[in-house]
Design a protein around this nucleic acid. Sequence first.
DNA 1: CAGACGTGGTC
DNA 2: TGACCAAGTCT
Length: 362
Amino acid sequence: MRDGNLKQVGPAEIASDLLVWYDVHARAMPWRVPPADKLSGVRPDPYRVWLSEVMLQQTTVAAVKDYFHRFTTRWPTVADLAAAEDGDVMGEWAGLGYYARARNLLKCARVVVADHGGVFPDTLAGLLKLPGVGPYTAAAIASIAYDLPEVVVDGNVERVMARLHNLHDPLPGSKPQLTELAAGLTPAQRPGDYAQAVMDLGATICTPRNPACGICPLRSPCVARVQGTALELPKKTPKKPKPTRLGIAYVGRRADGAYLLERRPDKGLLGGMLGWPGGPWSEGGAAEAPPIAADWRLLGAEARHTFTHFHLILQVRIADLPQGANPEVGQFIEPETFRPSDLPTVMRKAFDLARGGFDNTP
DNA sequence: CAGACGTGGTC
DNA sequence: TGACCAAGTCT
């Protein structure tokens, strides 16, 4: 049979082909136990598997690596994390995005310590009850950490399944079908390696833009490859356009170098993170009053930032505040305590502009 | 169930 | 430059 033709291959053989490929091409990750080490009985640490999986939700491996290293260095066990201060965890997560993940991370660590003796549940149902652990993450922990044959379905698996079976129904409506197809391939042997193999395949071979079909271990049974439809799969329902909102960031600096910051409420955008006072952002325009009376200067440049569902143009206003200033909003953070890296990215952008403003007007 | 929820990289 | 994309979850 020529390589360009479709070949009937059973589910067991597909899984087996994928595992053979994975044994050679598995990417090395700080949270992963390589296939060869598993043969000597080494098991992944459920804490590290959980932490990495939460960080990897909608986030690239490249972005996660440094955060994973900092978290596991500072909090080596789930008990260490459970005992951490909220603000320390939020600050360490700053820049990674989707901050509900960090809030749920801490909640989850405390539940595992308080209700499970510091040991992660080893069933899908038990894992699903944990804060911030949904169908994907529960199945990933169950299969990767405990080698249970649960069905792991993430964006990679959806893409691989849609192409393998040439399924043109659009996401997210087709998710149940894709899950069904994924379930049909999940093997009883080495389900954890299999799950990681599909995700590695999706990340390195069966990529969204330039799939390397020629070297894909599943090229023989892949219907989309033969039909020439791989590039258009999986289909997705079109997204709505993003509106643009306007806002103000008031960056106030006291004579001793302390900055006036506020802790944002747990609910909503950037919940639980530090930020500059400035009120809500809206399409109508920004008119929020300053947190304290002072000589606020408007900077010439604005911070631009795009969130998941809107663009933001942020005016930056700066002021030198007297040592005895007593603002209604927020709290001063001493220069020894303040780490710009504790700020979410949009707030750090405003800070970078403000710093230039202060430098120009000593 | 559709919308909220971040960010950095890529083309 | 801007739209799309990446190991989703919660409401």
